[in-house]
Amino acid sequence: MIRHETADDHREVRDVHTRAFGDNERVPGLVEALRVAAAALAPMSFVAVVDDRVVGHVLLSATRLDAPRRIVDVLSLSPLGVVPEFQRQGIGTQLIAHALEAADSRGVPLVFLEGSPHYYGTRGFESAGAVGFRSPSLRIPEAAFQVARLSAHEPWMTGTFVYSEAFWAFDCVGLRDPEAYSLSDNSFGSG
């Protein structure tokens, strides 16, 4: 079952990301900061629950696109995590689909992420650079810079993607070593 995250889920969501990413501070800290950050768009946070246990989490948070006409409020899908024993069962895919549907229903034109094109390319995302967007950092491998264009997207909405401050403060931009990245690697999301 996929549902909105509640305050009662926060401890379990922290555990999901600690276990999924092998990191007990950076990614969980990012989630906590994004929940309370002042932003043009409120965050959307969803959990996957199996037998009353939170086993997965996805967060959509406000970011911006520096487009030629004006700044456009968009979202970033990050992080996506599923506890190891529930990975490769479609839970990440369900979380992504639910998140994209929620963003689309809110009228958000674009959702960006850093991730494996092998994984996210079959789940509604495409190469952002190939369709006119510029990455916010040279530390993001070109193939990892992904976008989902939703129904509110208009052709003039191109330009530079800009992460919110929390991503920079927690050093969560371009975390991957480009030398270790491969098109078949699924480590750009723990779904």
Score class of each variant (00 low, 15 high):
residue 72 V to I: 15
residue 124 G to L: 05
residue 174 G to I: 07
residue 112 F to Y: 07
residue 95 L to F: 05
residue 19 R to M: 12
residue 86 F to Y: 15
residue 57 H to I: 04
residue 147 V to I: 11
residue 82 V to H: 02
residue 62 A to N: 15
residue 123 R to K: 05
residue 84 P to V: 03
residue 143 A to I: 10
residue 148 A to T: 06
residue 13 V to C: 04
residue 191 G to Q: 00
residue 51 D to M: 10
residue 32 E to N: 07
residue 108 V to S: 10
residue 110 L to C: 13
residue 58 V to L: 07
residue 3 R to H: 08
residue 177 D to K: 01
residue 165 E to V: 07
residue 70 R to E: 14
residue 35 R to A: 00
residue 75 L to A: 13
residue 41 L to A: 09
residue 86 F to P: 06
residue 1 M to A: 12
residue 133 F to G: 09
residue 133 F to N: 13
residue 5 E to T: 04
residue 81 G to P: 00
residue 142 E to N: 11
residue 189 G to P: 03
residue 103 A to N: 04
residue 82 V to C: 01
residue 135 S to H: 09
residue 72 V to M: 12
residue 150 L to Y: 08
residue 125 F to G: 08
residue 56 G to P: 03
residue 21 F to W: 08
residue 27 V to L: 14
residue 111 V to Y: 09
residue 90 G to N: 01
residue 175 L to G: 15
residue 27 V to M: 13
residue 120 Y to E: 03
residue 163 Y to Q: 10
residue 67 A to S: 15
residue 110 L to D: 09
residue 178 P to Q: 06
residue 63 T to S: 14
residue 152 A to H: 13
residue 174 G to Y: 06
residue 43 P to N: 06
residue 151 S to D: 13
residue 88 R to C: 09
residue 163 Y to M: 08
residue 66 D to A: 15
residue 157 M to Y: 09
residue 146 Q to G: 06
residue 93 T to I: 06
residue 104 D to M: 10
residue 79 P to E: 09
residue 120 Y to F: 06
residue 102 A to K: 10
residue 94 Q to T: 09
residue 22 G to R: 04
residue 174 G to R: 02
residue 137 S to D: 07
residue 56 G to A: 08
residue 115 G to T: 04
residue 49 V to C: 09
residue 23 D to N: 13
residue 7 A to T: 14
residue 21 F to Q: 01
residue 126 E to V: 10
